[in-house]
Computed example of a mutant assay.
Amino acid sequence: MQNADVLVFLLLVAILLVWLAGLFRKWLTAPPKTIRVVEPDEEIPVTDAVALLEESGYEVMTTKRKVPIRIRLNGDQELESRLFVDHFANDGDNIYIVKLARERQPMEMTGSGIRNQLLVYHLLYEEAAGILYVDPRQRTIHKIQFEVTA
């Protein structure tokens, strides 16, 4: 009976070691999380949107930022594109991405409309607390936060 106990114990230890080795290997090969640091601009021109954000208790940190994107198509063709972030703002505790409403590209305030236009910014700057969708004409600010559930 003692030999059987030792055998079961060794089998459990072997299974545990294989499982831990798999977790360690997965951790080693996982891509590092990139944290994008938002450097504040020294001067922010006061626009209607900036004034609205400041009236609402936000500090506007940046002017428009261009995020270049390199795309590889079928492994041999390289394309370039870009995204624009209108501003970054903070409320003292959190940083938010600011997107301004565009007359030419109105956003439908539905789940799919918001997802199609803004989810990419959430995925690009995961450390942001959310996205502020600002419409200076209507003087509205919508705070949008995504939670991706699997």
Rank of each mutant, 00 (worst) to 15 (best):
D76S: 05
E108L: 12
V98C: 12
I95Q: 13
R104D: 15
E108R: 13
R102P: 02
N74K: 00
D86R: 08
L83N: 06
S112C: 02
F88V: 14
R104A: 12
E108D: 10
Y96M: 15
P106E: 05
S81M: 05
E108T: 10
F88K: 13
T110A: 03
D86L: 07
S81E: 00
Q77P: 01
L83C: 04
K99L: 10
A89S: 13
R82M: 07
D91T: 13
E103L: 13
I95S: 08
Q105L: 12
G111C: 03
D91A: 09
V85F: 09
D93H: 11
T110W: 01
N74M: 03
E108N: 08
D76G: 02
D86C: 10
P106D: 06
L79M: 09
A89E: 11
D86W: 11
V85Q: 03
V85E: 02
T110I: 02
N74F: 03
S112W: 03
N94R: 14
E78Y: 09
N74P: 03
G75K: 00
N74S: 00
Q105S: 13
L100V: 08
I97K: 05
E108Q: 11
Q105I: 08
I95W: 01
S112L: 07
P106R: 01
E103M: 11
I95D: 08
L83S: 01
P106V: 00
E80C: 01
A89T: 10
V98G: 12
A101L: 06
L83A: 07
T110Y: 00
V98R: 10
D76W: 06
S81C: 05
E78T: 11
E108S: 11
M107R: 08
E103I: 14
D86Y: 10
F88H: 11
A101C: 10
D91H: 12
H87W: 05
E80W: 04
R82E: 14
V98K: 11
H87Y: 15
G75E: 00
P106M: 00
M109W: 02
D76N: 01
T110V: 06
A101Y: 04
L79E: 06
R102I: 00
V85C: 02
D93P: 03
A101P: 06
E103Y: 03
N90Y: 01
N94E: 13
T110D: 03
M109H: 04
Q105T: 13
H87K: 05
L83W: 14
G75V: 00
A101Q: 08
I97W: 08
F84Q: 11
M107H: 03
V98P: 12
N94Y: 13
R82C: 08
N94P: 12
D86Q: 07
D76L: 04
D93S: 13
M107I: 13
D93I: 06
